[in-house]
Design a protein around this nucleic acid. Structure first.
Length: 568
RNA sequence: CGGGGCGUGGCGCAGUCCGGUUGAGCGCGCCUGGUUUGGGACCAGGAGGUCGUGAGUUCAAAUCUCACCGCCCCGACCA
């Protein structure tokens, strides 16, 4: 490609509203442009890199025996309804309206389409295992969009499904994908961590996220030196012990005028936060839920989804709380409450003689004992926090921010009913198939690499996903230098090197700055003096080191370096 | 969905409070000519704007009012 003909619109200055270094560099280097909130166009350099990533994924999946599909995007109601359930507002699915009907889900989970095909076409256990995948632009109805290429209405991703005849087969498919994702990320130049992921809402028995550590990441990971690592959404920690005074008789109602928060009540009644019950009301699917925690603990909202029909709950409004409890939020408690589920965190189990709201403004109850004065459902609701003790080894937990770029899920076969994929086993009986889901987000790979691999001058691509392998930079595109550049350009193309010839009528400084910004791994510089001696400069972007090479050995030198830079 | 902010050549901004000498400017980029040519050159000339859209107030609106649209931030936390 000749740079004079290429569309690589580099910018000297940064646009406003950049949210991260990767966002700024991808825009400045001409890889992406925003077309709307959460909508980014990938320009030719960006598309080239995305295709490189897709190529790596296809190669790894192909080597593992997976087969690629091309699935339709705007499914009608019928597809996915059986298996994926109806599209609900706020469930992360976009919807569209068209001539053939009212709003229909525009983005049924890929496993719904795969499962549909499987049910129609696969009959016998002898046809298993199957691993099916597609690489496509999926839609996502983000509640909160952010500028930058990581929270999008649309994202390019790989989704795959494995179908096995039994759990041990699923174990193999899962392991296959685990290894394959690891190799894919490594080849893209990323170091990844695997962390336990929330299984809420996805109905799965095992769930792992692949994440890249980075400051601006949208996920939090709780981790421990013993190897425990989990997404904050599902992380746990050891519950600190609290000693209780023995309970005596029925709860006592005490006046607490104007005392609403946990800390106010603690000061007023002398009841420490650890001896209080925190009562939180959520509404999900028009139904109220009462969640109880120890006063010093925080609710993890991701964990409550399992109790709210997997729907996104919201905190109840003040008017709803008053209608349900006859009191305001500062005076709520579980005693005497019926007509709604009461879910209590494990940290309250076995406790006694605690303090909570009396469901009457300005009054609290003391001497309340769970399982005696109210009967909750027990669950893990508490948000783990850094500094608490690891539930495995007892050492203090750490936390870091990260971006999720891939996942593995084993679907729970037992709970799959009418929509389940089945086959006939050796005895001719219908048996459920063990299904796994796996995914990779290609755009996040791209932006994560830039986030982690750049310097003040621009992007530093790993050779595997760079838009071009080498940029050929004649200092002046004239006379002997032009002749040498044209000749070398032809030879590089003949050698299958992805070369960009900077034939623009620009000063050398502009060419160097642009090449650094775009981040092309190698640069071959041709200047009049060196060319007259049959030499060229070979510049490596990552190390910023230059060496003199004979013109005749430029191509072999590049080839050996590029091969060396490809891991696995 | 709630609260706040912004919208001025391709990009970044000033001007808006206090309506009128501002024929709407500046930096970067872009075009032409010339001088340059190893890390974002210089000189001269030039193109490019429904001041987000629509209505209103006024002798007069980028500037004041209302509505709508778009975008950004914060909150509700989503894959």
């Amino acid at each position: 490609m000749r740079w004079s003909q290429a569309f690589i619109p580099t910018l000297r200055e940064s646009p406003a509203d950049v949210e991260s270094p990767s966002h700024r560099l991808l825009v400045r280097a001409g890889f992406i442009r925003r077309l709307g909130s959460g909508l980014y166009a990938y320009l030719p350099p960006g598309q080239r890199s995305l295709l490189k990533i897709a190529g790596i994924i296809r190669a790894e999946l192909g080597a593992a025996g997976a087969q690629e599909f091309f699935l339709p995007l705007p499914h009608r109601h019928s597809v996915g309804r059986d298996t994926g359930g109806p599209a609900r507002s706020g469930d992360g699915l976009s919807s569209v309206e068209d001539r053939s009907g009212p709003a229909s889900a525009a983005d049924i989970p890929h496993e719904a389409a795969f499962t549909e095909l499987f049910r129609r076409e696969i009959r016998s256990y002898r046809e298993l295992p199957q691993v099916w995948y597609q690489i496509h632009a999926g839609l996502c109805d983000e509640l909160r969009l952010k500028p930058g290429p990581r929270r999008l209405r649309q994202s390019l991703r790989m989704d795959s499904c494995s179908f096995d005849r039994d759990p041990s087969g699923l174990d193999r498919s899962y392991r296959l994908h685990y290894d394959l994702l690891c190799r894919t990320f490594t080849r893209c130049g990323l170091k990844v961590d695997t962390v336990e992921a929330s299984s809420a809402g996805t109905d799965c028995s095992q769930s792992v996220d692949f994440v890249v550590r980075m400051g601006g990441g949208e996920d939090c990971v709780i981790s421990c030196s013993c190897g425990y690592a989990a997404n904050l959404e599902c992380a746990t920690s050891r519950i600190s012990e609290v000693a209780d005074e023995p309970a005596c008789g029925a709860p006592r109602r005490v006046p607490t005028p104007g005392q609403k928060t946990i800390s106010e009540v603690a000061a007023f009644l002398g009841a420490p936060a650890t001896h209080q019950i925190k009562s939180l009301v959520y509404i999900a699917g028009d139904k109220p839920y009462l969640f109880l925690l120890r006063g010093d603990h925080q609710l993890n909202e991701a964990k409550i989804r399992a109790f709210a029909g997997n729907m996104a709950g919201r905190q109840a409004r003040p008017d709803e709380i008053r209608e349900l409890f006859g009191a305001d939020a500062g005076s709520l408690g579980p005693v005497g409450i019926s007509g709604m589920p009461i879910v209590a965190d494990y940290a309250l189990r076995g406790r006694q003689n605690m303090t909570c709201g009396a469901n009457q403004d300005d009054f609290h109850l003391q001497g309340v004992t769970p399982d005696v004065h109210f009967r909750p459902v027990w669950a893990d609701l508490r948000a783990a926090e850094p500094g608490e003790d690891c539930s495995r080894c007892g050492r203090p937990l750490g936390m870091y921010r990260a971006t999720r770029i891939g996942y593995l899920r084993k679907l729970a076969t037992a709970s799959r009913e009418s929509g389940a994929a089945t086959v006939l086993d050796a005895e001719g009986k219908q048996v459920p198939v063990a299904v796994g889901n796996y995914g990779i987000d290609l755009e996040r790979i791209l932006s994560s690499v830039v986030e982690l691999c750049h310097d003040d001058d621009g992007i530093i691509w790993p050779g595997t996903i760079a838009p071009f392998a080498v940029v050929l930079t004649p200092v002046n595109y004239r006379e002997s230098v032009k002749a040498a550049a044209d000749k070398l350009y032809e030879e590089m193309q003949g050698a299958q090197l992805e070369v960009l010839l900077d034939d623009r009528q620009e000063r050398p400084g502009v060419k160097f700055k642009d090449a650094d910004l775009v981040g092309i791994p190698y640069r071959v510089v041709l200047g009049a003096e060196k060319v007259s001696r049959g030499q060229a400069e070979l510049f490596e972007r990552a190390s910023r080191k230059t060496e003199l090479v004979d013109l005749a050995s430029v191509i072999p030198a590049l080839q050996s370096r590029l091969l060396g830079s490809v891991p696995v």
